[in-house]
């Protein structure tokens, strides 16, 4: 019950933030209680990201516990052959190779959701578009001239840039978005949004794994201090009664 009240309060707060943000694509709010979403996010990470991007501050075992995946099942299906459950999650691509192939090291993603925001990741994954001038043929709305290829392209389909010329007095110059191109993806637009959401949600979790423990312990601690406050107040009142 207490948890439900808190979650309601939090979602109220974040929806206010979301309205204030006023983005047309909507603001992504991480939901750690949605374990299915976190598990799908882990799937996306394992299948599409883990070749290049490490989660070097995270351990396989921690994920298996927090995401409710049985140890044996995890070891059989998700653990790379070279790693053990207690290992930190490393990528197979060496940073020397990354520099040679892409011109940049693939950043560690453990803290990406804290360094930017889960919402940024959510929009970044949806922000790729075709750009012939780039070596890999794609560019990104949020991170211009990004070195990363659009690894989710076969899911999303090709996207094209569409810019709306605004009034010249405006500083931003033009307002751009992406629209569906000729080559369609294997999933619908709505399904792809869910994929981006799950990935961002999973990375929000890797950036802040203590949140599971933190918020449940926090409620108990605050409840105890609140109770203590009552007694401290009564004690103070009792002693100060005779002071005029």
């Amino acid at each position: 019950m207490r948890r439900a009240i808190l979650i309601t309060l939090f979602s109220c707060f974040f929806s206010i933030v979301a309205v204030a943000g006023g983005s047309d694509q909507g603001v992504m709010t991480p939901d750690f209680s949605d374990q299915a979403s976190l598990q799908r996010g882990l799937k996306i990470y394992s299948n599409y990201c883990s070749g290049c991007h490490q989660l070097s501050y995270m351990r396989y075992k921690e994920i298996s516990i927090d995401l409710g995946i049985p140890n044996a099942l995890f070891e059989e299906n998700l653990l790379p052959k070279y790693a053990r459950m207690g290992s930190q999650i490393t990528a197979t691509m060496a940073s020397v190779d990354a520099k040679r192939w892409f011109g940049a090291k693939a950043p560690d993603l453990t803290l990406e959701a804290k360094r930017r925001s889960p919402n940024w990741i959510y929009h970044y994954l949806q922000g790729f578009y075709q750009d012939k001038s780039r070596p890999l043929g794609v560019n990104n709305l949020l991170l211009e001239n990004v070195a990363m290829p659009n690894v989710l392209e076969h899911l999303q389909g090709q996207r094209l840039l569409q810019c709306q010329q605004e009034e010249k007095s405006l500083k931003s110059g033009h307002n751009c978005r992406t629209v569906a191109g000729k080559i369609k993806g294997t999933v619908s637009e709505q399904e792809f949004k869910q994929i981006a959401y799950d990935t961002a949600n999973f990375l929000a979790y890797t950036a802040d794994p203590s949140r599971f423990q933190r918020e449940s312990l926090g409620l108990k601690v605050l409840l105890f201090i609140a109770l203590f406050c009552v007694f401290a107040y009564l004690l103070k009142k009792e002693f100060w009664r005779d002071v005029r």
Partner: peptide, 23 residues
């Protein structure tokens, strides 16, 4: 007198302090 007053102040402060720490 001021021991009890300070304990009350500390209790109220800790409530706010831990609210930030945990949430």
């Amino acid at each position: 007198y001021f021991i009890t007053k300070d304990i009350l102040a500390i209790a109220i402060f800790l409530f706010l302090f831990y609210a930030v720490i945990f949430f």
